[in-house]
């Protein structure tokens, strides 16, 4: 068990290292393009060379990578070309904003998906099951950019209930959080619900559920004590993987509503080749994704006695 944990963490670090190197290579592999990005397209060759020497870009790439890694680990994310400010100043608040959005989404999506999934899976083929299944397929089919438009037309332009933009230029406003959250929940809950349903339905056909029923214990206890404990193991991993998906979703959603989060920052930086911001955002995204995967894996092991005691 301890070895497994160490192995997982080791794997996580290794993946992070490789990702960091790839990000670095893609962004800073060619120093001249960086210099040109900073000094502008009309800079002379000599100017570029001088700038590169001043900023230590004449060293071998591996050395530069390690130096950069050292700075990143100590919290120095470099200076944004676009904003002319240290990346750290912008980055953390943007990440925080995305955290709020993600938390709101998860708080609604996860319980809803689990409850609907369990209800559907309890009695496979029932009306409720079919209804929930079709509902979750339907909502998963509407991409974020489509539902953003649809929901805006309904709630903003027709009913005039909610603000159409979530820029929050006048401070935090919960009303502005509703639409982006709704978009993410709508697109995301179906997947978890269907996975939960599949897991629950499978558990309900197992022999140990038959044993439990034929043991004569009340149906409620069969569900709560015997079925759920096994049926929720798989969805746990799925939920953890959804964090990865959520980071994808926020790029589109934040862009759609002008929400000042990490996804919009990344997109903006990528379009403007703001390399230090790209690197920070890329690393953060992969870190969150890999961490959640690792937690998912470890959690799966902990929840599953068959693996836990082996």
């Amino acid at each position: 068990m301890g070895i497994l944990l160490l192995k997982r963490l080791g794997m996580m670090l290794l993946v992070m290292l490789v990702v960091a190197f790839l990000l670095f290579l893609a962004n800073e592999g060619d120093p001249y393009s960086i210099a040109r990005g900073v000094l502008g397209p009309y800079a002379q060759q000599e100017q570029l060379t001088i700038w590169l020497q001043e900023h230590g870009y004449d060293k071998p790439i591996l050395v530069r990578f390690l130096e950069w890694l050292g700075r990143v680990v100590t919290g120095d994310l470099g200076v944004s070309v676009q904003y002319k400010r240290p990346v750290a100043e912008i980055f953390w608040s943007r990440l925080g904003n995305t955290g709020i959005l993600a938390a709101a989404t998860f708080a609604i999506m996860v319980p809803m998906a689990l409850i609907l999934g369990v209800l559907a899976g309890m009695k496979e083929g029932s009306f409720l099951d079919r209804f929930i299944s079709v509902l979750s397929i339907g909502t998963t089919s509407v991409p974020e950019y489509a539902s953003a438009v649809l929901l805006s037309v309904i709630f903003v332009y027709s009913l005039d209930l909610l603000p159409g933009s979530s820029a929050m230029s006048n401070g935090f406003d919960i009303m502005q959080l509703i639409l982006p959250t709704m978009v993410l929940v709508l697109y995301g809950f179906g997947y978890i619900a269907r996975m939960t349903r599949a897991s629950m339905a499978e558990v309900m056909t197992t022999h140990y559920i038959r044993t439990a029923i034929l043991k004569g214990i009340p149906y409620k206890r069969v569900i709560v004590k015997h079925a759920l404990r096994n049926a929720l193991i798989a969805p746990f991993t799925v939920i953890m993987l959804q964090l990865n998906w959520l980071l994808s979703g926020v790029v589109v959603t934040e862009y759609a509503f002008g929400y000042k989060g990490f996804g919009a920052l990344l997109l903006d930086a990528a379009l403007r080749k703001d390399i230090f911001v790209i690197e920070a955002c890329g690393l953060a995204a992969v870190f969150v994704a890999v961490l959640s995967q690792t937690i998912g894996d470890i959690g799966y092991t902990l929840l599953n006695p068959r693996i836990r005691f082996n």
């Binding site: 197992t206 022999h207 038959r210 043991k215 404990r229 006695p305």
Partner: peptide, 25 residues
């Protein structure tokens, strides 16, 4: 009524014991 009978007055032993027991209890 069936529930009260099952597992008390009528009990069953199954073919695959591994599958018949709940793996996480």
């Amino acid at each position: 009524e069936l529930r009260q009978l099952r597992g008390s007055d009528i009990a069953m032993i199954y073919q695959e014991p591994m599958a018949a027991l709940n793996p996480s209890m």
